[in-house]
Design a protein around this nucleic acid. Sequence first.
DNA 1: AATCTAATCAACCGCACGACT
DNA 2: AAGTCGTGCGGTTGATTAGAT
Length: 341
Amino acid sequence: MGHRCCGKQKVKRGLWSPEEDEKLIKHITTRGHGSWSSVPKHAGLQRCGKSCRLRWINYLRPELKRGSFTPEEEQIIIDVHRILGNRWAQIAKHLPGRTDNEVKNFWNSCIKKKLMSQGLDPKTHNLISSHQRASNKIGGSSRSQPHDQQKPISVNFTTVNSQMKNCSAELNSSSSSPIVTLYNAQQAPMVETMATPPTHQYHDDQNPNAAWTSVKDPTFHEPSTESTLNISSSSSSSSMNLSVFGLLGNSNCLYAAGAQPFEAPRIILEGEQSKGSEEVLQQEKEKLLEMEMIKAIDDQDMDASLMESSSFDFSFLESTLMSTGVTSHDLNSMADFAWNY
DNA sequence: AATCTAATCAACCGCACGACT
DNA sequence: AAGTCGTGCGGTTGATTAGAT
């Protein structure tokens, strides 16, 4: 029973027994892990150091939070994944008590499919074209899909700022006439981008037959600035609403900074709408943003576009609009813009 | 009740990277 | 500079679980 990383040593593989767990816990809590390669020997385990490390990190650490992910955690994963991609360890750092392995498994087994079922590319978080969706269609499963996979989603173009520097930009139409002028993120006023209050979708879980209803965001204030870009959802029956453009902390503002000012459509999760959890979510998002901003500045590996973007990047907006048939030449029609979904 | 099938999750594998010699 | 070692990470696998038939 050899093991590649441990040479000729005989090591056990597979699931850990309670006895092995006990030995490992006892060893690490009393002596620390030191060099992982020496742990098996000192702890009296027939395992390789790598396996011990993995077991400790993913399962035995006392600070680990067990149990299923909360809707707030799920939203954080989606938000951070959109920024960082499959950097599970980085994503997990935003979720105290969760491991990269846990996050990765949750993504692959649940979130990924949920996004796909909502017509979103789990890699890019952009809308998938209809023919792509057809080819990516998830086959019907005999095991029941989580019921919330069937829920409609509300498109929420929130701004994820990785930086707050170089915060002014202008969006020009092809004819060079300014459509929207954006200001420094730290300077008021921000561009109000909505005439229609953001909505949240509710569903009465006590009544599975109840229709989804959209409810105005109680924190919404009517925009008042001149350079308002009216984007309303004229189709109340649409399951997807272009309902929110804005910064995470302020759903009505569009910040002009960072590489990806518009966040991909996000899923409004069950339970998220409750006042309490929404506040928690909001706080978590603000904290996340703060951390991401610091990280983006420090992290040399960060996508170069994040660092060099001194102007607003509308590629995401553009691609999203294009996918819905709205072109940059046709921004006036955005007043009646709605997702045909 | 038995079998099939898909979801879930713990664990493994290989690679990359940094520290050290 | 090159080699080795230890560690961390992301992708993948395989066992288990649980719903469907």
